[in-house]
Design a protein around this nucleic acid. Sequence first.
DNA 1: TGTAGCATGTAAATTGTTACATGATTGC
DNA 2: GCAATCATGTAACAATTTACATGCTACA
Lengths: 192, 192
Amino acid sequence: MSLPHAILTALLEKPSSGLELTRRFDRSIGYFWSSTHQQIYRELGKLERSGQIRALPSAQPARGQKKEYEVLPAGREELAAWIALPEDPRPVRDPLLLRMRAAAVVGAEGLGAELRRHLALHRSQLEEYLRIEERDFPPERTADEDRLRHIVLRGGIDMETFWIGWLTRALADEPVLREGPAALDEPAPAEG
Amino acid sequence: MSLPHAILTALLEKPSSGLELTRRFDRSIGYFWSSTHQQIYRELGKLERSGQIRALPSAQPARGQKKEYEVLPAGREELAAWIALPEDPRPVRDPLLLRMRAAAVVGAEGLGAELRRHLALHRSQLEEYLRIEERDFPPERTADEDRLRHIVLRGGIDMETFWIGWLTRALADEPVLREGPAALDEPAPAEG
DNA sequence: TGTAGCATGTAAATTGTTACATGATTGC
DNA sequence: GCAATCATGTAACAATTTACATGCTACA
């Protein structure tokens, strides 16, 4: 149950409206805690009612009107307390690993193509992380927050590297995953 | 939405009752698709009503009585079709990375201890996977299903290895994570 | 004035979690 | 008989996803 904490973190980094938060949950914060605008608006309402955030005075209370929030002391305290709270790693729940296990009983038809597709996606995500690293974390920076944020980004980099390595090795080692994605002289596969 | 597929896979590997499935979702299948008995019973009901599985004839329909299920052809087809279905990797949602990002704005008090705790948990999980690998996948085995299941297990091994590497490096590099679990000769540091 | 895009929301359905309830079987 | 354990479930709630609804602003 970390969505409120993700929102508090984002708002401490920079006071924002719901839509601005939504956009930041598509990059930045969103790289390790994804969310949608529906969840965000609902949670902003809860956080406001519980006195952890407030709308900036300038904001109109009308619908369709931009409404910016900032974190109150109670919210900051809640966040600091949460950081130290013991919480075990989530049990893994990964559809791709599950599909491969299923393939062991009903056949790997079509799985090789999916692995190659995922490999491309992870490579592209890794490239994006590396661009961000180059842009935001030049070697000379040493403020505490920068170093911690850099470690977080390295988490993303290492995770993508893990997927790329695992997928590459699986495809290289395993003959049953080597079927072509579609014959070259057939019409292009439809995309939805 | 993969729980039904996880159950179909588990039942194809071996027809089972709800409780037996629950136990296998605590190890084996559960290493990459976790679930609880409540979800499992609910889903078994749905799968039975939709004709993808059936209770074995021997099973009594009484409460408290063991009831074993097996997969019907429709279930096997559904599973085979699902394997080839394009499905993007889930967006990451990791509380530990989020906590570190939060620590960059409100301070890392207590976070180092959590990282060390997680490091120990991941090391122990890795050891378990390596024991399973040694026991179930000796070098000479070469059946298709065994090789695929071995690749899945290697996914778990590589993932734990990634976490261990990232945590180790973070703890080694970052001074603000080096606080003791509680200072031995000081009162607990106040935090504003 | 109409339409595209910005911005904030509501509603419903699904999925996942936590706590509890009930019946059967086994060993004492 | 009774307690422990096996086994199957219900109920209530929380989190997440998907689809839709509404109001504002700019601009052609």
